[in-house]
Amino acid sequence: MKKFDFQLAGDTGIHFYPKGSNKSYIENLLSCLREKGPKGIIDLIPSLSNLLVVFDPTNITLEALIQYIDKLEIDEYNNKKKYPSSWEIPICYDEKYGLDLQFISDNCNLSIDEVIETHQKQIYQVSMMGFLPGLPFLTELDSKLKMPRRSNPRNLVPSGSVGIAINQSVIYPQNSPGGWNLVGRTPINIFDQRKKEAILLSIGDYISFKKIIREEFEDVYKKNKISPVRIKKINHND
């Protein structure tokens, strides 16, 4: 019996759904196909419920693709795979950048300091990327901060803004309209299309936020215009 269910997305796409509650299946299948996927796979689009594999049928048939994935020893492979990167991302929770701190505080019955502390102490994992190039969906937000998206999305959320909604936090990689509740902003560029490695983060990466004051933010921000700031990698494998 197959370890997955699937649904077709036309003749060049197929969604693989894990069976049962095998949560890490999607992430493991993704890294497996990324590293040693067969010729003919064009794109991989993971989400919380499934993995969409886009393929070129002139290079690999649907049947061959399904058979290939069925034969993969994904769990075994997972044990050997590289440990995901961990990043410490500076964030300024000044109300100049955390435009919704007051609103979140009122909504969640916490003081602004408690909101900041609750958001900052959590270690997050990049569970999905999308909406904008390089935008990470970070799980899991402390349930004390659980609230819906803004009913009136902003027309312009500045690049680097950090927002929260439901059980997730996000970092905006570029200026964009957006409806997340803003807690602060990072001076780091997580997306720079001029670079070869344009997108800093990957699915599975761990993120922790390091609180910085407004002066530090502005200092880093200015320097960042000249050369990108090296982000300290942390290790919480222990």
């Binding site: 997305a9 036309g10 796409g13 999905m128």
Partner: peptide, 28 residues
């Protein structure tokens, strides 16, 4: 739950109208 978008897929919005997805659509 949001999931991957394929070029040429037809999504149905909450109001029941179809949108045909083209190459610049969001990935999910």
């Amino acid at each position: 739950l949001s999931d991957g978008n394929q070029i040429g897929s037809i999504q149905i919005t909450l109001s029941g109208e179809p949108i045909l997805l083209l190459p610049d659509r969001g990935t999910i």
